[in-house]
Amino acid sequence: MRYRLPLAVFLILIIFLAIGLTLDPREVPSPFIGKPAPEFALPELADSTKTLNPRELKGRVFLLNVWASWCVSCRQEHPVLLDLAKRNIVPLYGLNYKDERTSAQRWLEQFGDPYVASGFDADGRVGINWGVYGVPETFVVDREGVIRYKQTGPLTPEILENKLLPLIRQLQGSPT
């Protein structure tokens, strides 16, 4: 029996290593899932006299997309966001993370603005409070103001159709 022990341990190891090949060791799950979204009050990107505050959005399901003009993969996901905005399913808010106001505004002019409004988070404090570590990130917040889902990295049409939209419909359908 004890001569077979090394083989048994090794086989278990191999199984885990094989599973490991399918995982991404760098993806960090958000501890905010199922928790109330952190509060903030940020000046809007387009008009610094207005403030964006998620508390005012309570009662509606909404998306918060973290983006920046310096972020390369934000360009990649931008068409998906524009398409989503056009379909008018769910309000999309932006969190403009560690950016400069003029370049951010120019970026939206150039590529189109899918956001109802974007909060301007110049020093990245709000981003940190939301646990942002890799722009772009997208949060789904329900009617109670609870974060239900977080997508780290660019949204693709597949992720949108297969994960986000079904969840959003379910959240919108459930009674408050």
Binding site: S30, P31, N129
Partner: peptide, 8 residues
């Protein structure tokens, strides 16, 4: 930090 990013 753990509140925002977890035990990672």
């Amino acid at each position: 930090l753990t509140d925002r990013y977890g035990d990672f």
